[in-house]
């Protein structure tokens, strides 16, 4: 009906502002510089740690020396590796379930106000219950296997996923939704092409928090009743006043959390390169 005539613009396109994207190499070097700050600080902490133990200001069973802690790694590599794998499995399973169920619940709540009114207060209430306090109950219900540990990890990680999912899905521009309603697209299409991408930045922030909480959840589950995993290693080391081993387990736990966090950070680079939080770095 309407004939589109090809025509060159009569006016020079005014105000063609285009900001240059930083090159990949520059971004990479920036990332290295950014890593330098915490690395220097960490080195200082280790030096202070060394000095405190070398001058024998405190007893070795209170704070072991860096060398003793390192020895714990080198003397019992198989032992630590075996228990690390157990905790890693529990953490990953807990995180995956929390992420899937959390996103699903967030979607249901955003699309149904009845569901939200019913379950949001309950989820909030469940979040307030200290997970550590109910962990023994899970052992009673589920036994000493991996499932109670996974369950505690799920419960810890679930909440930030739901909250960030809901607020992310709500953050979509209402005018954009009105626009899609004039396009006659199905709700599924609108969800996949508009709502979900718009929710990703907040959702990924929630997942980063959830990742670190999942590690905590798994270890807490192990504290309550386990014969394997880093939580078990910590309890054993504590019983033997083997503080060096305890430190070693703590370091592995932290690394596990940091690693999961970093994986999601990398995923962000690919999933939301357009988002301000990624563009304004450095």
């Amino acid at each position: 009906m309407t004939e589109l005539t090809r025509q060159t613009p009569t006016l020079p396109s005014a105000r063609l502002v285009r900001r240059a994207r930083p090159s990949r190499r520059r971004r990479a070097s920036r990332g290295l510089v950014a890593a330098l700050y915490p690395a220097v600080f960490l080195a200082l902490v280790v030096v202070a740690w060394f000095l405190v133990t070398a001058t024998e200001m405190v007893e070795p069973y209170i704070i072991p020396s860096p060398a003793d802690t390192w020895a714990a790694f080198t003397d019992y590599p198989d032992y630590l590796w075996e228990h690390t794998l157990v905790t890693t499995r529990e953490t990953l399973a807990g995180f995956a379930i929390a992420a899937l169920v959390g996103v699903l619940v967030a979607v249901l709540m955003v699309y149904s106000s009845t569901l939200e009114k019913t379950f949001y207060p309950l989820i909030l209430f469940a979040q307030v219950i200290p997970k550590i306090a109910i962990a023994p109950l899970f052992v009673v219900w589920l036994g000493f296997g991996t499932s109670p540990k996974i369950l505690v990890a799920v419960l810890m990680a679930f909440f930030p996923v739901v909250i960030s999912g809901i607020s992310g899905l709500r953050s979509v521009d209402p005018e954009l939704l009105e626009l899609t309603s004039t396009m006659g697209a199905s709700p599924v299409k609108t969800f996949l092409k508009v709502r979900l991408p718009a929710a990703l930045p907040e959702l990924l922030s929630g997942l980063k928090v959830a990742a670190t909480l999942a590690v905590t959840g798994a270890v807490v589950g192990e504290f309550v009743g386990a014969n394997s995993g880093l939580g078990y290693v910590i309890l054993q080391a504590n019983g033997n006043i083997d503080t060096a081993m305890l430190f070693a387990a703590l370091i592995i736990m932290s690394l596990l959390g940091v690693l999961l966090f970093a994986v999601i950070q990398v995923a962000e680079m690919f999933l939301i390169p357009w988002h301000a939080s990624r563009r304004n770095r450095g």
Binding site: S13, L16, V17, R18, R19, R21, W274, A276
Partner: peptide
């Protein structure tokens, strides 16, 4: 060009 690279008019 991505939206954030464009001016308001563009």
């Amino acid at each position: 060009a991505m939206p954030y690279e464009l001016s308001g008019g563009m």
